[in-house]
Design a protein around this nucleic acid. Structure first.
Lengths: 235, 235
DNA sequence: CGCATTTTTGAATCATATCAAACCCTGTGG
DNA sequence: CCACAGGGTTTGATATGATTCAAAAATGCG
């Protein structure tokens, strides 16, 4: 739990330049007063593996911050096809839709702890707090940039390029140590990358046989040749 | 490339065409003070068909508003693959990236008139104008929502579903009259939908033969059975 | 008109999906 | 300690939607 002192430290007054809305290093985690707003004011809730946090078309009255665990944003077709829009990891703020209802459902990939506040409270505060307003823009703009990169990935990359890009993204988000545990199943990865579970599994095996990664367990990934993997991602 | 010097050169009176921008239906544009800010303060520039407005990795110092014409946001791979991130139509604001450089290039699909202001001017104003701050959020959030829908389209829809969704999107943006002229080539459509030009052409022909659309000319589309087309889009 | 560009159509090929089955964990209970 | 069960993962064989290669037909333009 954050106390007021930690909050002060995170507000980073030095970041405000003459321009007013400086370009911050893009990151999944806002690490800004938006996150702090959620951290401090938010009620806490637990969700177990596969629990629905909110459904598509649910009223978008709350904004969420993931304290721990992993969440997937999903869109389900009538015929069973599924697309995962994004994965959220600890620290990420999600559920902040523009319309009155959520455009994607949110489900717990594993056991999750989230904090939530009313969207109206956030907007009310933003009306008087210019820094929070700037952070809201940052949050939306960062989401936009990630989504555009995914458009490129899904529109033009091969199965192996998609998986390589995914592994590098996950490594980066887990700290860039080149070794991490995936919280999601192969099926989740497939629905994130616009592929089938079999193609994802085959691509994993392919990278392992090629010596780009090691897979001590199915969900445990260790980079053996990061440069080659990065090359394979198609940049 | 568009550095400040080149910009100055291009801003000479010759480049500034005659009066008042036409009252075009704002498609993606918010129609808010963000658009107004660009409309009122912006210098005007013309670009002819296929001209580059800015390149990928160019400094993102300017924000643009399309007065007339159509612009494509493109990402080019080293091996020639291309993905179009979005099409911008009259009224749209574009080029407002979060980072220091543009993540996509912008090119004129047909002859275009754009207005532009320095991003720093926009941000400076946003620091003191809460309404403009809110509009910036709106702009980014709307872009985010569109990009997410495209993730679903590219990740899970068939070629025909993609084209149907595209035609409905274009019709909506052109006023929803069920009859419109596409400004872009089949190749542009293909690179927008993550397909090849042949597959796009075949899908057009298929819809025509099925009686869903009429194609008096290749780029002139008239809806014959909108409901069926909408159904085909996979929603 | 004649030439370049764009679009359409056809045939062959390929990457990925689909169908099917085996494998491998990990927890449970005899 | 082993048998078993169930979810998750991998692998194999085949099918298919989209791509690629090729060429004809429109379209537009000087």
């Amino acid at each position: 739990m954050l106390d007021a002192t930690v909050l002060e430290a995170r507000l980073r007054p030095a970041a405000v330049t003459a321009a007013g809305w400086p370009a911050l290093a893009p990151s999944h985690d806002d690490g800004t007063s938006l996150g702090d707003f959620l951290s401090l004011g938010g009620a806490r809730m637990n969700f177990e593996r596969n629990a629905e946090i909110f459904a598509e078309d649910d009223a978008a009255d709350y904004v969420y911050r993931l304290v721990s665990g992993c969440v997937r944003a999903t869109r389900l077709f009538a015929d069973g096809r599924r697309q995962i829009g994004e994965f959220h990891l600890a620290g990420d703020v999600f559920g902040l839709d523009m319309g009155a209802t959520h455009a994607f459902a949110a489900e717990a990939v594993d056991d999750c702890v989230v904090q939530l506040v009313r969207r109206s409270a956030l907007f009310a505060r933003a009306a008087t707090d210019p820094e929070l307003g700037r952070d809201l823009w940052h949050h939306a703009a960062a989401g936009f940039e990630r989504a555009r990169e995914r458009v490129v990935l899904l529109g033009r990359k091969t199965a192996q390029e998609r998986l390589a890009a995914f592994l590098i993204e996950m490594d980066t988000r887990f700290g860039g140590r080149g070794s991490f545990e995936l919280p999601m199943s192969r099926l989740d990865v497939a629905d994130y990358l616009g592929l089938t579970i079999e193609t994802v599994s085959r691509s994993f095996s392919h990278f392992e046989h090629e010596g780009l990664i090691a897979l001590p367990q199915a969900r445990r990934v260790r980079f053996v040749n990061r440069a080659a993997l990065s090359w394979r991602s198609g940049h």
